[in-house]
Design a protein around this nucleic acid. Structure first.
Lengths: 151, 151
DNA sequence: GGTTAATAGTTAAATAGTTTAACAGTTAAA
DNA sequence: TTTAACTGTTAAACTATTTAACTATTAACC
């Protein structure tokens, strides 16, 4: 690969990932904007997926400080969407779970997002899509590996 | 494609794009965090690319309201990185350009980001990378088309 | 066992980014 | 020439973020 073509590929990647990000964020917001912010939705998504987690875990997954998570969680808690439960064995730890209301709201917004993403990705051949996700996964692994090496 | 496999692909896409986003944002921040925020860097990047643009144009590209752009531009202007020049023919319009200082700062951070992205994408075969970007471009076009249709 | 370390989470202050709504100045249209 | 549309800004309100200090709790070590 010549230096020239590498620079072009780098520029290309930076440009397209930026554009797709902005467009996707706007799209998600359009689906959930009335009840939740995007970050709040992603938080509910994660807790829904794992069932129960801690603030420290969320901070690691979202790559932000714990105090940022406290702020998001407090807002969701004020809306009655999240439960905070102290661990009786280690009283430093607080487990986060969805309330009934939180689960319902997540499922409702999730349906819309699933439908939206589905309407988009079904415009690709399955082969193309599978290959795309494979490379995307590989990229994720490389970034994860790099992060663990740097920090 | 069965419904089941579609749902799996949708979940897969949502998950991997979220993770890569968070990791990439953190990485970019690590490179530029001292002088600029990520959004400020992306703003300088865009102006550098097109040479000169307006707030309305930036608002469209970033998919936010014009007042959000005013805030970002004002911060960059206060740092002496951006010039605001009124159009003499249409005095509503303000052209945004980089100052010498803005250009220097962008080039400096850009070098680091280019090196970073290069170190990552050169871990892929050129063929795989080209195919990935091709699909990514297609995704961008689909999102753009959808956006123009919805709004 | 008692002191010291580390850990989990919160709080407070400061900053960035965002939206909505109202506005000024300017240009286009009727 | 009046009215409508457009460009950018301001102000208020809110969300998200970081840093630094703090509380409460648990683990480590001598």
């Amino acid at each position: 690969m010549s230096d020239q073509s590498i620079k072009e590929l780098v520029d290309h990647y930076i440009h397209v990932s930026f554009s797709v990000n902005k467009l996707a964020e706007g799209m998600v917001k359009g689906q959930i904007g009335l009840d939740l912010t995007n970050d709040q939705h992603y938080t509910l998504r994660y807790i829904n997926k794992v069932g129960s987690c801690t603030s420290s875990e969320l901070a690691a997954v979202f790559d932000v400080k714990k105090s940022a998570i406290t702020a998001i969680i407090t807002r969701l808690w004020e809306k009655g969407l999240i439960l905070r439960t102290r661990d009786e064995n280690d009283r430093r730890v607080v487990y986060l779970t969805l309330t009934e209301k939180g689960n319902e709201l997540f499922q409702k917004t999730e349906e819309r997002i699933q439908a939206l993403v589905e309407s988009i990705i079904t415009k690709f051949d399955q082969d193309e899509l599978v290959q795309f996700l494979k490379t995307y996964d590989k990229l994720k692994e490389i970034l994860l590996e790099r992060k663990s090496r740097v920090e």
